[in-house]
């Protein structure tokens, strides 16, 4: 179990070096992306001006306040509360994000499935688990909302955050097909019969 501090963006080799249970802290640019953002990008032909090559995206739709564009808030938005949403709903966008935009890291909660594992293996990427629901803490890692694109989808816009000490995050899916979610899930299913027996029920 190793710890890595990344200044974003990173290369393929950096992503492939990560193993399950390693931890990572990010600095620099981080993109925020959500259901509607990706539906519009991958189903409705919209594009973004942002260069996401080698970058990380976090599954989020933040609470923000419009304060007008200033040096401290170049996007015009001040962050209020930035947290992370359940990744599973956005499973089918992992591969296009990686292949079309060069994304290397997906940050989320609850994990992704086999299709994403395959994409991480084929293209070279990882999934980092953040603690869902710990948004007050996560917000303290975000220095600024630098820019925003596709803002007609607000709050599901494409956000460009500048972060400092964003982590530690847990490598829970790596580029070798490993997934802590699959491991935990399989172990839990193995305990199903015993749990049912404790309730006086014979497992079917």
């Amino acid at each position: 179990m190793a710890h890595y501090d990344f200044n974003m963006p990173i290369g393929e080799a950096d992503a492939r070096r990560l193993e399950l249970n390693d931890t990572v802290t990010l600095n620099g640019t981080l993109y925020g992306i959500r259901d509607a953002t990706q539906i519009h990008m991958f189903d409705r032909g919209r594009t973004t001006r942002f260069d996401m090559k080698g970058h990380a995206v976090v599954h989020t739709a933040p609470n923000v306040k419009w304060v007008g564009e200033t040096a401290a808030h170049p996007s015009g938005y001040a962050p209020i509360c930035i947290g992370t949403t359940t990744s599973a709903r956005m499973e089918r966008f992992t591969r296009p994000l990686m292949e079309q935009y060069g994304v290397r890291i997906i940050i989320g909660k609850g994990g992704l499935s086999e299709g994403s594992s395959d994409a991480f293996r084929d293209v070279g990427g990882v999934y980092l688990a953040i603690v869902g629901g710990a948004a007050a803490l996560e917000t303290t890692w975000v220095e600024q909302i630098e820019e925003v694109d596709l803002d007609d989808l607000n709050p599901e816009s494409l956000w460009k955050f500048r972060v400092k000490g964003f982590g530690p995050l847990l490598v829970s899916m790596d580029s070798r097909g490993g997934s802590l979610y699959t491991q935990v899930n399989n172990a839990a299913r193995d305990k199903r019969a015993a749990a049912l027996a404790s309730l006086g029920v014979k497992a079917s």
Partner: peptide
Amino acid sequence: ATGKAILGTMIRNIKVAEENQNLLCQDT
């Protein structure tokens, strides 16, 4: 160990939310 660390982060988040008078979670 992982479970314990995650619970620790959640407990810390409750404190940070109170100190910063911020929302516990972004999902309203």
